[in-house]
Computed example of a mutant assay.
Amino acid sequence: MEQNKINPPIIEQIKEYIETRIKLLKYKVIDQATGIAANVVAYAIIAVLGLFILLFFSVTLALLFGSLLGSYWAGFGCITLLYIILAILVLVLKAKYIEAPLIGFFITKFFKNNSK
């Protein structure tokens, strides 16, 4: 008879422990997901601002080259040529200098958020 009195509290404690672990896991997932979402939003804002800076810098540089060359289309053509050269360089060098550091960055961010 005494064993039946002892078992129900142990079973209930185990159930409570499992429920607590499940809640803790949910909170960790929520914490990690919100951290990642916040990083994505922050980097998206930085990327948009960077694109605006690049756009206005490009237009300014094209107008400068246009005034130096005496023709606005020539200035914009020079900047277009510059971007074509940069695009080719990115395509050629992407595996070594772009993909590898980005993979390392994302792995570091994931495990940094995961170790909390």
Score class of each variant (00 low, 15 high):
residue 67 S to L: 05
residue 21 R to T: 08
residue 16 E to H: 11
residue 24 L to T: 14
residue 32 Q to D: 06
residue 12 E to M: 12
residue 91 L to Y: 06
residue 43 Y to C: 03
residue 22 I to F: 01
residue 35 G to W: 00
residue 106 F to L: 15
residue 48 V to W: 01
residue 81 L to R: 02
residue 99 E to K: 15
residue 2 E to H: 14
residue 30 I to G: 03
residue 99 E to M: 15
residue 55 L to H: 12
residue 67 S to V: 10
residue 5 K to Y: 08
residue 91 L to C: 07
residue 100 A to G: 05
residue 45 I to D: 00
residue 24 L to S: 09
residue 47 A to F: 14
residue 60 T to I: 07
residue 104 G to C: 02
residue 103 I to Q: 07
residue 57 F to D: 03
residue 85 I to M: 11
residue 5 K to E: 10
residue 89 L to Y: 10
residue 57 F to A: 12
residue 67 S to A: 01
residue 22 I to S: 00
residue 8 P to E: 11
residue 83 Y to G: 06
residue 22 I to Y: 06
residue 66 G to I: 00
residue 87 A to V: 12
residue 75 G to D: 02
residue 81 L to E: 03
residue 92 V to P: 02
residue 40 V to C: 05
residue 9 P to N: 04
residue 110 F to K: 07
residue 113 N to C: 08
residue 84 I to N: 11
residue 93 L to N: 15
residue 106 F to R: 12
residue 47 A to R: 10
residue 44 A to C: 09
residue 86 L to H: 01
residue 109 K to G: 07
residue 78 C to G: 04
residue 112 K to R: 14
residue 108 T to D: 06
residue 108 T to V: 09
residue 79 I to A: 02
residue 64 L to Q: 04
residue 77 G to K: 06
residue 94 K to L: 09
residue 105 F to Y: 13
residue 26 K to C: 05
residue 106 F to P: 00
residue 6 I to N: 07
residue 102 L to N: 07
residue 17 Y to F: 13
residue 74 A to M: 14
residue 29 V to Y: 07
residue 100 A to K: 15
residue 75 G to Q: 01
residue 31 D to E: 10
residue 30 I to N: 06
residue 29 V to C: 03
residue 102 L to T: 07
residue 67 S to E: 09
residue 46 I to W: 05
residue 7 N to H: 08
residue 21 R to W: 08
residue 39 N to S: 15
residue 65 F to M: 11
residue 57 F to T: 10
residue 18 I to M: 07
residue 49 L to K: 09
residue 70 G to Q: 03
residue 53 I to V: 14
residue 12 E to I: 15
residue 31 D to C: 05
residue 60 T to D: 05
residue 44 A to Y: 02
residue 113 N to R: 13
residue 51 L to C: 13
residue 115 S to H: 08
residue 9 P to Y: 11
residue 8 P to M: 10
residue 99 E to G: 02
residue 100 A to I: 15
residue 32 Q to P: 08
residue 39 N to G: 14
residue 51 L to Y: 12
residue 78 C to V: 15
residue 83 Y to Q: 07
residue 72 Y to M: 09
residue 25 L to C: 11
residue 11 I to T: 10
residue 25 L to N: 08
residue 86 L to T: 04
residue 110 F to R: 05
residue 101 P to R: 06
residue 69 L to I: 05
residue 98 I to S: 01
residue 54 L to F: 14
residue 37 A to N: 07
residue 10 I to Q: 04
residue 105 F to H: 06
residue 19 E to Y: 08
residue 53 I to K: 01
residue 115 S to Q: 09
residue 106 F to S: 14
residue 73 W to F: 12
residue 24 L to P: 00
residue 45 I to Y: 00
residue 75 G to F: 00
residue 68 L to H: 02
residue 41 V to C: 06
residue 82 L to G: 08
residue 95 A to I: 06
residue 17 Y to E: 08
residue 20 T to F: 13
residue 111 F to Q: 09
residue 61 L to F: 07
residue 80 T to C: 00
residue 6 I to D: 05
residue 32 Q to I: 14
residue 75 G to V: 00
residue 1 M to D: 12
residue 63 L to W: 01
residue 46 I to S: 00
